[in-house]
Design a protein around this nucleic acid. Structure first.
Length: 531
RNA sequence: GGGCGGGUGGCGAAGAGGCUAACGCAGUGGUCUGCAAAAUCACCAUUCACCGGUUCAAAUCCGGUCCCGCCCUCCA
């Protein structure tokens, strides 16, 4: 496996400290509001990296921090008249809602700055003792000049930085590039006791301390957005290596940015899209698909059309799952041996699986890996078109192929089950049944009307006909699948009697409710419109 | 100004010296179908920002030019 290492600016063969394990640290959010799509990219990217490493047999230890002590949190809290730590806590909870919805596996540890103050203070003290830091009126600064490798990650020298300095330099600092490790408390801010008086940690020190605290002096992989390379990650290296004297990180991974109209999506530009607003419109796996259809280091431009395209593309992949599920019949015996055409088919699928692995092994090339998934989708679709549902060998072959297909889709996290909106869909389907019954009664087709009522009664749903239409009463929610099976059997009846007007209007009604019908030889299958 | 990365069909996006320049979206034609959808088969870049160079061979390497993004300030 190879990974692009920002530190060396090239792809390197991955060789972890322990051959079977990977230690991974990813910079998490500063929790002062909801996360936006740009924040979601590293989440999905590194979640995919993690899944893939696990797929390749690594035991992954994953740590992601929360910055819950920070200027922006304090400012926000002040605006809202809230306590900074409580506000941060609230947005951590909101963060988890979003991340869970996106199918992001929780980190093994989610450390917070506020819970690691003693360790941070101790680290700063050591840095002062070693001559890497100095105190100044209650502030403590890192002495950049004392750390000779400073700039090795971002590829710039101290001179470069000073040449381009856009910030007003604090005259008290020994060097303009020195950065704060500890900030003296100002009134009304959260503060902790320290040898330099009351104060709070600077932004960079938390990551150095918490990552090494949980993962050891040297991490295998450290990830984050590419805007963190300088100064954040550069400073992390300086702090950690000054502390331990050992290399801090073996492989630095940085994801590219999401842009809107070719401008970085950011809070300061105001051109950001809140993740949960997007998730209200598009299923999570569509969002994941969109985010990994481009290589993680490339910039990714966002507009509505992109998600729409992702939805269509992913819908194609999921149709294969649907077609296969319809074909597979667990009641039939399976052939012990797969040979001939069936063997060629399974072989082709296995071959694309290898291509998938090759692509992912090469710096997590998800875009290329997805191409292999599409190839498998094609293989399965075409095989299905000619396969015989009663053939034991066909059954076995399709089952084997689908297992591979599902496995790869799961590694990418793009085959999520859609549990959401079940309630709405259910209500919609019931409404259609009521409508159908009303039509039948108007046409004096009482056989059909009664049939519908009896069916509903069997499910524990009573129909009450009143002046203004019919009402349904039920204690327990019926299974939407049962309703659909019944509805489709009615439609088959209509079609058998060449009553296309009615079968088509039924199809249209379902479409309005977000359920799409596709007729096939065996009957009709249904799927949700949003994927 | 300094550092980093990039410009590939109508659109998105892989490819990083030599196979027909993947894959997806959109589009066109055929099969299937009562219709639609889905699926399927076929077609859809002689050319990879531009100009030079290296090489038997360049989208891929080198030099130059023009554009674009990111970082140098909090940001994923």
């Amino acid at each position: 496996m190879r990974v692009y290492n920002t530190l060396s600016s090239k792809k390197e063969e991955i060789s972890t400290l322990n051959p079977h394990k990977v230690n991974m640290y990813v910079c998490g959010p500063t929790t002062y509001n909801y996360i936006h799509l740009g924040n979601a990219r590293p989440l999905v990217v590194f979640d995919t990296v993690r899944r893939y490493l696990a797929f390749r047999g690594y035991e992954v230890k994953y740590v992601q921090n929360f910055t819950d002590v920070d200027d922006k949190i304090i400012n926000r809290a002040r605006e809202e008249g809230d306590d900074p730590l409580l506000l941060a806590q609230r947005y951590i909870e909101e963060y988890f809602k979003d991340a869970d919805a996106l199918g992001i596996k929780r980190a093994d540890i989610h450390p917070r700055v506020s819970q690691h103050i003693p360790e941070i203070v101790a680290a700063i003290q050591t840095l002062v003792e070693k001559g890497f830091a100095y105190e100044m009126e209650g502030d403590v600064y890192f002495r950049v000049r004392a750390f000779h490798d400073y700039g090795k990650l971002s590829g710039r020298s101290l001179e470069d930085m000073l040449a381009g300095a856009r910030v007003e330099v604090d005259e008290r600092k020994e060097n303009a590039a020195d950065f704060a490790l500890w900030k003296a408390a100002r009134p009304g801010e959260p503060a902790w006791k320290s040898p330099w008086g009351e104060g709070r940690p600077g932004w960079h020190i938390e990551c150095s301390v918490m990552s090494t605290n949980y993962l050891g002096d040297t991490l295998d992989i450290h990830g984050g957005g590419s805007d963190l390379i300088f100064p954040h990650h550069e400073n992390e290296i300086a702090q950690a290596e000054a502390l331990t004297g050992k290399p801090f990180v073996k492989y630095w991974m940085h994801n590219g940015f999401i842009t809107v109209n070719n401008e970085k999506m950011s809070k300061s530009l105001g051109n950001f899209f809140i993740l949960r607003d997007i998730l209200a419109q598009y299923p999570a796996d569509v969002v994941r698909f969109y985010l990994i259809a481009t290589h993680y280091r490339s910039p990714l431009d966002f507009d509505d059309g992109k998600l729409e395209e992702a939805r269509k593309a992913l819908g194609r992949l999921k149709t294969t799952l649907l077609l296969a599920a319809e074909f597979l019949n667990d009641d039939l015996p399976q052939a012990a041996e797969i040979k001939g055409k069936a063997l060629d088919f399974v072989g082709a699928v296995a071959n694309y699986r290898n291509e998938f692995i090759e692509a992912m092994d090469d710096d997590f090339n998800t875009a290329k890996a997805i191409a292999s998934v599409f190839e498998i989708s094609h293989c399965i679709n075409s095989y299905l078109a000619a396969a015989n549902r009663g053939d034991a060998m066909d059954q076995a072959a399709v089952k084997a192929a689908v297992a591979i297909y599902q496995e790869l889709g799961d590694v990418l996290g793009i085959f999520m089950k859609q549990a959401k909106n079940e309630e709405t869909l259910l209500a919609g389907v019931l409404e259609i049944l009521v409508w159908l019954r009303k039509e039948a009664r108007t046409a004096r087709n009482f056989a059909l009307a009664d049939n519908i009522r009896d069916f509903l009664k069997n499910l524990g749903i009573s129909v009450e006909d009143g002046e203004h239409g019919s009402r349904l009463r039920y204690e327990e929610s019926p299974q939407i699948d049962e309703l659909m099976v019944y509805l489709l059997s009615l439609r088959q009846e209509f079609k058998a009697h060449k009553d296309y007007a009615r079968s088509d209007s039924l199809r249209d009604k379902l479409k309005e409710q977000g359920i799409i019908l596709e007729d096939s030889r065996e009957g009709a299958r249904w799927k949700f419109a949003d994927v």
